Amino acid sequence: MRFDDHRVIITATGRDFGRTLAIRLADLGAEIFLSARTLAAAERVRDEIRGRGHQHVHAFACDLTDPASIRDFAADVARHTDRIDVLINNGSRYLQGPDLQSASDADVVDTIASGATGTVLTVKNFLPLLLNSDKPDVVTMVSACGTAGHHRSDAHDAFYAAKSAQAGFAEILSKRLRPMESG
C-alpha cells in the first residue's frame, strides 16, 4: 500500500517506534508532519528522512504534557496545510516501576498527562484539519498495557493507566467520529 497524497501527523517521533514509523510512511510516499518533545529531536528525524530523498517532511516541537504546546503544534501545521489525512497518536511517556510507590508524583503526572490528556488534546486540536480530508483517520498506538487483563509488563501502574485511557478514548472516537451508516 502506498501513501502518496496522504498527509500524516505522527507524535513522539524523536526515537524508537515513532522514528521508525515516520521513516516507513515517508518511504511509502506520505507527507510527514512529525513532532517530538524538543525541536532538535524532531529535526534530527526530519533530516534523516530528507537524507533518504524525501523532501515532504516537517519537524515541530510538541510536549504532550502541555496543552499550549499541543495547540501551537496544531496551529503551526495548519500554516503548512489545509488538511491532515491521518493522525497517529504515538506519544506516551514510558515509565517503568515495580509498584505504585516506585515513581515520583511528577513522573506519574507526566506519564498520564502525555498519554491520556495529550492524546485527547491532540485529536481535539487537529480535528478541524482531519475533517477537511476526504479520508480522515486517527490511529492511536496502544500497547498491551492498555488491554484489559494484561499484567505481564514491567511498566509502572501510571503507564498502564495512560494506555488504558488511550484505549478507551480510541474506542469512543471510533463510534462518535465514524460516519453514520445508511441502511
Rank of each mutant, 00 (worst) to 15 (best):
V123A: 08
I112K: 04
E31A: 15
A74I: 06
L28D: 14
V138W: 04
P98Y: 11
R2V: 12
R71W: 00
S182W: 14
P136W: 05
V86G: 03
R46N: 07
G91H: 01
F60K: 02
T111K: 00
L127A: 12
R79N: 11
G149D: 09
V109D: 10
E48N: 07
L28S: 13
R71P: 03
D4H: 10
T140N: 08
A144N: 12
A116E: 02
R7Y: 11
R46G: 05
P136E: 02
T20N: 15
D4T: 12
A61E: 10
V142S: 03
P98R: 15
S102C: 09
G149S: 07
R93M: 09
V86Q: 01
R176P: 04
S153P: 00
E48M: 09
A30P: 00
D27C: 08
T119C: 10
P128E: 03
L39S: 06
A12E: 11
L95C: 07
V138H: 05
R15C: 08
T81V: 10
F17G: 05
I70Y: 06
L25H: 06
L28E: 15
H56V: 08
L121W: 10
T20I: 12
G29N: 05
D76W: 03
L25S: 06
D82K: 09
H56M: 10
I84H: 02
H151I: 11
A30R: 02
A41R: 11
K135Q: 12
R15H: 11
L34T: 02
D5L: 08
N89K: 07
R24F: 06
R44G: 13
C62D: 01
D47K: 10
A42T: 06
R79M: 09
F33P: 03
A161S: 10
L39H: 08
N90C: 06
T117M: 10
I10P: 00
A148T: 13
K163I: 06
S35R: 05
M1Y: 14
A42G: 07
T38D: 08
R50D: 04
G97Y: 01
E31T: 15
R83F: 03
D107L: 05
L129A: 06
R24G: 09
A155N: 11
V45M: 05
R79Y: 07
I112D: 06
D154P: 13
V77C: 05
F33I: 03
S164C: 13
T38S: 12
T11C: 00
I88V: 14
D82H: 10
S174R: 14
L87M: 05
A26G: 07
D99C: 10
H156N: 02
A26E: 02
A74C: 08
D137V: 10
S164R: 15
R7G: 01
M141H: 01
F60G: 02
H151A: 14
R93W: 01
A74T: 08
V8P: 01
I112T: 08
E48Q: 14
A22G: 04
L95Y: 00
Q166W: 04
D66N: 09
V77S: 06
H6S: 11
G18Y: 04
H56P: 06
L21V: 09
A75N: 11
S35I: 01
P179W: 00
P67Q: 01
D134W: 00
A116S: 13
R71F: 00
